[in-house]
């Protein structure tokens, strides 16, 4: 067991981990941050996306020890400081970008990473970026709408 320390949602945290402990296990089991979900355990579904030093990462593909000293942001750190929903989260609610909500944390984290690098993506760019996030309520259409709206663009997208 080794102690792994990192900054999660702005707070310095540490937990005892085994070498094989995945970042997602560290977050869920070590820190109790269960907003980051494990949908597939095989790096396909994207429900576990978090930001590590500002980059979107599937936290089931990374060992906790690899994130030693890193700045990690999870869905729990996405709301505004006063607790209100961030622009992206609010857009998901406004455009019904979720049903069961299981994929939603990963969708929001991916969307945030996309908009950071590409503040005004085209619809095609949004769809291409979400390649690694699977929604089984078949909600992609409204997810794309929500992300377009969060980027301040018209939501009346062509595919409707």
């Amino acid at each position: 067991m080794t102690k792994v320390t990192m900054i999660v949602n702005g707070k310095s945290v540490s937990a005892e981990t085994e070498g094989r402990t995945l970042l997602v296990q560290y977050l869920r089991e070590g820190l109790g941050l269960t907003g980051t979900h494990v949908g597939c355990d095989t790096s396909q579904c994207g429900a576990c996306v978090v930001h590590v030093n500002g980059e979107a990462v599937k936290s089931c593909t990374m060992f906790a020890a690899e994130a030693e000293g890193a700045e990690v942001t999870t869905i729990e750190g996405m709301a505004n400081p006063d607790g209100s929903l961030s622009v992206i989260q609010q857009a998901f609610q406004d455009h019904h970008g979720l049903q069961c909500g299981f994929c939603t944390p990963g969708m929001v984290m991916s969307a945030a990473a996309l908009l950071k690098d590409n503040p005004r993506p085209t619809e095609a760019e949004v769809r291409a970026y979400l390649e690694g996030n699977i929604c089984r309520c078949t909600g992609y259409h409204n997810i794309v709408k929500a992300i377009m709206a969060a980027s301040g663009q018209d939501v009346a997208i062509a595919a409707e």
Binding site: T34, H37, I75, E76, M78, Q89, Q93, L98, G101, P105
Partner: peptide
Amino acid sequence: DIRFLTGTGNYTD
């Protein structure tokens, strides 16, 4: 939606 969007959904897992 609020709890799902803020990571407080509290699913079985």
